[in-house]
Design a protein around this nucleic acid. Structure first.
Lengths: 180, 180
DNA sequence: AGGTGCAGTGCAACGAGTTGCATAGGTACG
DNA sequence: CGTACCTATGCAACTCGTTGCACTGCACCT
């Protein structure tokens, strides 16, 4: 599995503390692999014990000390091993589909409102992603290597949110027509 | 949370055994909420103890006995309660994004092959969904109520797979151009 | 003076999902 | 005849993810 690997990818790009990693996940890698600070701390300790990463304690003024992690040789080896290993395709998992499926057992109107709410949230995420795209990748055709990969991951997030909001629109329209 | 509720929705439509439910999940509800037989058996027992469902043991010839579950009053109440309750929007979680992000740390070529493989799998799922759509919902504009909801859920699965395969295509093309 | 929020790490308990295995009889194939 | 797959249920162990909490100290707002 992969929180280990997601962290290794992030740490290879740049060393950082658990806290910093948690914030990075909220942005970039988190589009495809969300994680809370709790998970991250636990996995960091595990990887430290396994020798995949090393940490240095850094004393700070006015702030708590922090542990900055770097990827060790064993971690790099594990990462390349994992990159070459096939992975099971992901599955969708969204309670909203279950709600829609069961809508007629409760109030269709309430479920409709819920779908509108989700649509709004996903549209907000979409706007966030689009503004990142504009800011960080204004000329996609000029990208290469790591920057290109990062851009393509962002594109995945954008496409997923576009598709989801479009589905919500289809559902909302159909339910409105059916439920006058 | 929601495996309970997914099962309640499915059982409300039609009573069934754990085994049957597992197979139903492989098809319809599983597009949005996959579950293994293990999870289903465990949750069924839990719901039985809680009085949300009742079971009848049915002896069969040439086959093992089975327990057919029906939704009880408490289960119906729980289901309508849950339907009215707001739910957190789902997040994407796909290791493929992490691999792409880290591609330059290993072999871009190997990651590209992996993406092609995922594309093929998702395309297969998409074809399955489309054939279900053709077979079960040839005239979507005539649908109402529960049938309409079921159709719209399927549409969600179709849209998700379409969007994913299109993203894979974008990635494959971009990586090929970048990696001659 | 008190509340909120940020930076920073962490424990403990729980809930959800995964994997391997066990049992058992029937059918179908080579 | 053996193997493999289908129906049918379930235990045990494990990993993964979630939630609530604890502690420190500074900055900012009202």
């Amino acid at each position: 599995m992969a929180l280990e690997h997601a962290i290794l990818v992030s740490l290879t790009e740049r060393a950082g503390s658990g806290y910093e990693l948690a914030r990075r996940f909220d942005r970039s890698i988190g589009y495809f692999w969300p994680a809370t600070h709790q998970q991250i701390y636990r996995v960091l300790r595990r990887m430290d014990e396994a020798g995949w990463v090393k940490h240095t304690e850094i004393a700070q003024e006015g702030r708590p000390d922090k542990k900055v992690y770097r990827v060790a040789a064993a971690g790099r080896a594990e990462l390349t091993r994992w990159l070459a290993e096939p992975e099971d395709p992901a599955v969708l998992r969204d309670g909203l589909g279950v709600k829609l499926r069961g809508a007629s057992l409760g109030s269709v109107d309430v479920v409709l409102k819920e779908i509108e709410r989700h649509r709004a949230e996903h549209a907000t995420r979409l706007e966030v992603y689009r503004s990142i795209q504009k800011r960080d990748f204004p000329k996609p055709s000029t990208l290469h290597g790591r920057d290109l990969h990062q851009y393509l991951v962002l594109r995945g997030g954008i496409r997923a949110e576009e598709s989801f909001t479009a589905w919500c629109d289809e559902v909302i329209e159909a339910l409105r027509k059916d439920n006058p």
